[in-house]
Computed example of a mutant assay.
Amino acid sequence: MRNLLMVIAAAGLIVPPAAMSFPTKAEAKEKKHRAYTYRRGGRTYCRHSDGTTGLIVGGVGGAVVGNSVDNGGLLGTALGAVGGAFAGRAVDRTLTANKRCR
């Protein structure tokens, strides 16, 4: 217990809470905008979502639904996984479309 209190006291001396700063709304907006752009050779390019997260989540979800619809059959699971993967990728790309560069 004593060692724990000493570690907490030492951490408080190293990083006092008053020294921490929080970004303003303008800084947060600028940082968010920079996350979707990058520069190379003097030109600005946009980062685009490839839909991988939606592909994986949709595939797993589709496999579960297909398995339950087909009562444990392999065909239902496979078709559900493929359909869910395509649908999940499309949804992921659609939801992130407004966050891309214009």
Rank of each mutant, 00 (worst) to 15 (best):
M1Y: 06
N3R: 04
L4Y: 02
L4F: 02
L4K: 05
L5H: 02
L5C: 10
L5A: 06
M6C: 00
I8T: 00
A10C: 03
A11E: 03
A11G: 02
A11T: 03
G12T: 00
G12I: 00
G12N: 01
I14H: 02
I14F: 06
V15W: 06
P16G: 05
P17V: 00
A18D: 05
A19P: 00
M20F: 14
M20N: 09
M20R: 13
M20P: 07
M20Y: 13
F22R: 09
F22S: 10
T24L: 04
K25M: 09
K25H: 13
A26I: 03
A26D: 08
E27H: 04
E27T: 01
E27R: 10
E30S: 08
K31M: 06
K31C: 03
K32H: 09
H33D: 08
A35F: 13
A35D: 11
Y36F: 15
Y36M: 15
R39T: 07
R40C: 04
R40I: 12
G41M: 03
G41Y: 14
G41E: 05
G42P: 02
R43C: 02
R43Y: 13
C46F: 03
C46G: 11
R47C: 08
R47H: 13
H48V: 10
H48D: 05
H48Y: 15
T52W: 15
T53K: 14
T53N: 14
G54N: 07
L55N: 10
L55R: 11
L55Q: 11
V57W: 04
G59K: 08
G62A: 05
A63F: 13
V64G: 05
V64I: 13
V64N: 05
V65T: 08
V65L: 15
G66F: 12
N67A: 11
N67S: 13
N67E: 05
V69T: 11
V69P: 04
V69F: 13
V69N: 10
D70P: 08
D70F: 11
N71S: 14
L74T: 07
L75S: 12
L75C: 07
G76L: 04
T77S: 09
T77G: 09
L79S: 08
G80K: 00
G80P: 01
G84D: 03
G84I: 08
A85P: 07
F86I: 12
A87Y: 13
A87S: 07
G88K: 06
G88D: 09
G88C: 07
R89K: 14
R89A: 09
A90Y: 15
A90L: 12
A90K: 15
R93L: 10
A97K: 12
A97I: 14
N98C: 10
N98R: 13
K99W: 13
K99A: 09
R100E: 15
R100S: 14
R100G: 15
C101M: 06
R102L: 04
